[in-house]
Amino acid sequence: MRGMRLVRFILTRLLQAVPVVLGVVVLNFLLLQLAPGDAATVLAGEAGGAPAEYIEQLRARFGLDKPVLVQLGLYLKNILFLDLGFSFRNNSPVLGLILDRLWPTLLLMGATLVISVGGGVLLGVVAAIGVRTWRDHLISVAAVIAYATPLFWVGLMLILVFSIRLDWFPTSGMEDVVAFHEGWARVVDIAHHLVLPTITLSLFYLALYTRLMRATVLEQRGAEYATTARAKGLTERAITMRHVLRNALLPVVTMAGVQVGALLGGSVVVETVFAWPGLGQLAFQSLFARDFNLLLGIFFLSACLVVIVNIVVDVIYVLLDPRIRVGSST
């Protein structure tokens, strides 16, 4: 019964997501029109100047000479068939370009989520259990420092210390391209490259979830049901593990769901600092090349990603909290 309703709930949410994503596409399209210059002027500029007729010719080839609304209509029509257009800059279809860059970004985001949520929950619980002991103080102070430090600075410092001085980790890239590793050796190589970017990207969120988890565990330990559990004769450890932890997780799950979008934004900086060949870096490059087709494609995919993650978070929430009724579509 519950399972069936859950499936229906997911399908409903997916259907509801379609207008949201289309709205995002339209908005992005119109916003990009506001940016000065287009792909033709950038190409011409890089060639060291070109006659006006040539620029016009380029525009006609890219379809940039048509009225904006016509361009938008065409784009929307194409997107319905999952045709994201052609990147003239890279001379290849947008979809292929993006899919190539998608999995490094997913890898980075996944690793970051696991580290920040997992580590944050763990550290938060440790701090809350030993509240006002040296453990709590250490974790809390470290969390504040990590929370206040800018991302790019952390990245640069990590490179400086661990790559350049100590030479423990590579400075940039996702794998050693000249080594031609295969199989497990390649996995290990990628994992080795992954360490610094992941730490950089997760440090802020790790601090955030640690603080949140510490606060909610402390709050929940003071709740009446925890007193009831104490009155039943349970040990403090059993109370925390069986009763408090699950209740305290709910706000963290909500927060993590909201922040996946922000994580994508943060990955632009990190991917640039570490030359990580992901979507963020691609977006950065395409923006400067005025490669709007590619940029729109990335935005479209990001929107889809955020929507999907939000649905996943909702499903996790339903599984964690029996009070939430699935099926009521309000």
């Binding site: 709740a223 009446e224 049901y225 007193t227 009831t228 009155a231 039943k232 009763h243 699950r246 909290d321």
Partner: peptide, 23 residues
């Protein structure tokens, strides 16, 4: 801990918040 729940039990004022909502 042996006494609590075993020899002396307690009933609280507000049953909604005295029970764990997730269990």
């Amino acid at each position: 801990r042996q006494i609590r729940g075993g020899r002396i039990a307690m009933v609280f004022q507000e049953p909604m918040v005295s029970l764990n909502p997730l269990m």
